[in-house]
Write a protein that binds this DNA or RNA. Structure first.
Lengths: 97, 97
DNA sequence: ACGATACTTGCGTTCTTGCGCAATTGGTGA
DNA sequence: TCACCAATTGCGCAAGAACGCAAGTATCGT
């Protein structure tokens, strides 16, 4: 039996993570990061949105603690903060069928 | 290696499921349903919201395919549509820390 | 120091969500 | 049929989220 007695705050944080996952473009970003770190520009290309828009999506993912950023010269590379994020994507996919 | 090549539509559905999970009250509902089916009124009490509001939250969860409803006389009982939903809650919790 | 490249931030618009309240539907029992 | 209880639906409002575009910041090369 799993412990289900979640506190108010924990639920709020969980919900925040779920909301961060609740956008197709952001899911696409996370999938794109599955193989390793990718720059903002490349992500924007893959997801087919403008760079500023992508930057905002990445800010959402960062705020939720799902990705981390690394700067190398001019370009910023994002990567998954936690492999469980991919698990979550898979689980969503399998639930959504 | 997990299959990550998600289609547009599948991502949209996954995102819809994630949005359904993206509210603390709805997470509380799902946790409450872990033990078995619960009536709308009881859920409203547990989650501390008004019945019409609860009904709307349940409609969201139903639309996402996360719960199912059964009518018995006057009262409607909701239950989890899929045990993986609980897994998802747990996973969110562990990611959100 | 200057221009160029890569991101981020701010702003205005539009669309979506959550909530409270009133009204309605569905089912039960007198 | 009528009152009653449980749940759903409709509506208006306020808060939040996504997008496009313009402006700002950071780093590199010359």
């Amino acid at each position: 039996m799993i412990d289900i007695a979640t506190t108010e705050g924990a639920r709020a944080r969980s919900a925040a993570v779920a909301r961060a996952l609740g956008d197709p473009k952001r899911l696409c970003v996370l999938e794109s990061l599955a193989a390793g770190e990718v720059s903002v520009g490349d992500l924007a290309t893959r997801v087919a949105c403008q760079v500023p828009n992508m930057s905002q999506h990445l800010a959402v993912l960062r705020a939720a603690g799902l990705v981390t950023a690394r700067r190398d010269g001019n370009t910023v590379y994002y990567r998954l903060a936690d492999p469980r994020v991919l698990e979550a994507c898979q689980l969503l996919l399998s639930i959504a069928r």
